[in-house]
Design a protein around this nucleic acid. Structure first.
Length: 383
RNA sequence: UGGGGUGUAGCCAAGUGGUAAGGCACGGGACUUUGACUCCCGCACUCGUAGGUUCAAAUCCUGCCACCCCAG
């Protein structure tokens, strides 16, 4: 679809015509106030859907974005529902985020939020409002895996913006109601649509040039370590505070070669932020919580051929059997790498990569693809 | 005030006569709905200091200063 399809003289007719996938049906669209979900609302209407918007307030700083969503909905005459989910978000996402760091993990709060808060709220409200479908402005698609009949997220072709990694924990019932209007589009095209349609935020500024969201939404200044420390102090003294305080940095042989600022500042594979007496470029290869020690080493020591992945959510696959060959992505921006999986008795997966991968970080997600479909995904365990 | 050692960027540090490596930190940018990684660009007209030797000195010589160690 080109922008011309929804703008110009044919636009108004197309927007409210009764042809398209959504004719006679209503959809509840998650709207963040950003350009993606705003353009998604346009596209849904063009498909004939009766669109309702839902904006969720996840944290104290979330009200401004809601105003932008309101502005868009006013422009397009879309009814908008704003729901305050701060309590649930704190319980299901923020608390998990903090406790993960206190276990030496590197959590990905967006991945926890999607199934537990964002999409479960969309489903709940869609049911309440009588909407048959839900939608968001993510860059992703959904397909049924012919081999199993199960629904799976469809990855965007490589080189484009693909957000399936963040959505991999959605379950079948969530995928079953979901549609992604932005599937197949690229970001520049979406911005162009916003520009041509003149979408603007609450203050009148163009959504077409609104920056992408980034960083952790509930930590606007980006300083997550300060955030964790503040939260810990709020609950009074505790042993956990030790992890926010400086300690020693050692090499793989246990020899002390410097110091660090507090273990919550680090993640496996990180190369900066610790003070060490050396001329080499060193990376975090692990940490020891009990002694507040950071372990670092040269790049080779950060390469791993085997990892263990837990908390598996199966999508396109119903299960795996030993020796299944897949492609796995161990971070949002990484390429998928060929691997073999072997289910463990406890439900975890032992994963062996064909080639060593760089710095799999415990707490981050490992998502398994078969070609372009997500088969399953889970959380990387401590090695 | 006898002996030995060391002084190179905010920190660590290579360099022993030929025109200041590298790592951390720092600043700017790209990438990015997590944390990271990665990639660009910048960062000592100068090597404690004052002289000397040399076509050429961080490198050799001398004085001075500072710090460290060992002795009394």
């Amino acid at each position: 679809m080109t922008p011309a399809d929804i703008t110009g003289t044919s636009c108004s007719r197309a927007l409210d015509s009764d042809c398209g996938a959504g004719v006679g049906k209503s959809v509840l669209l998650g709207m963040s106030g950003g350009v993606d979900s705003s353009v998604a609302s346009l596209l849904l209407r063009r498909q004939g859907w009766q669109v309702r918007g839902l904006t969720m307030i996840t944290h104290d700083g979330g009200f401004a974005a809601a105003e932008d969503a309101r502005a868009v909905c006013d422009t397009l005459s879309i009814p908008l529902l704003v729901v305050d989910v701060r309590e649930a978000f704190r319980r299901l996402v923020v608390d998990d985020f903090i406790s993960a760091y206190l276990m030496g993990l590197t959590p990905n709060p967006c991945i926890r939020c999607n199934p537990a808060v964002k999409f479960s709220l969309l489903i709940r409200e869609a049911d309440r409002l009588g909407c048959s479908a839900i939608a968001t402005g993510h860059y992703a698609g959904i397909r049924r895996n012919p081999a199993t009949g199960r629904l799976a997220l469809l990855k965007t072709p490589s080189g484009r913006k693909d957000q399936t990694y963040f959505l991999h924990r959605l379950d079948q019932s969530q995928l079953n109601r979901l549609t992604f209007p932005l599937e197949g589009l690229q970001k520049p095209a979406v911005r162009q649509i916003a520009a041509e349609y003149g979408l603007s935020g609450q203050d009148g500024s163009s959504l077409a040039v609104k920056p992408d969201s980034q960083d952790i939404c509930f930590i606007p200044d980006g300083n997550y370590t300060d955030f964790i420390r503040r939260e810990l102090l709020r609950h009074g003294p505790s042993d956990a505070l030790k992890l926010t305080e400086p300690g020693k940095t050692v090499d793989i042989n246990g020899k002390t070669i410097g110091s660090h600022q507090g273990l919550i500042h680090y993640t496996v594979g990180q190369r900066k932020g610790f003070q060490v007496r050396t001329t080499d470029r060193l990376f975090v290869i692990g940490m020891e919580l009990s002694s507040n020690t950071l372990i670092v080493g040269p790049y080779e020591q950060v390469l791993k051929k085997q990892i263990r992945v837990g908390e598996i959510v199966y999508s396109g696959a119903e299960s795996f059997k030993a020796g299944d060959r897949l492609l796995a992505r161990i971070r949002s921006s990484a390429r998928e790498m060929p691997c073999q999986v072997e289910p463990e008795p406890d439900g975890d997966l032992a994963v062996t990569f064909e080639q060593p991968v760089s710095a799999p970080s415990p707490g981050q997600s490992c998502v398994f693809y078969d070609r372009d479909l997500i088969m399953a995904g889970g959380i990387i365990r401590m090695s």
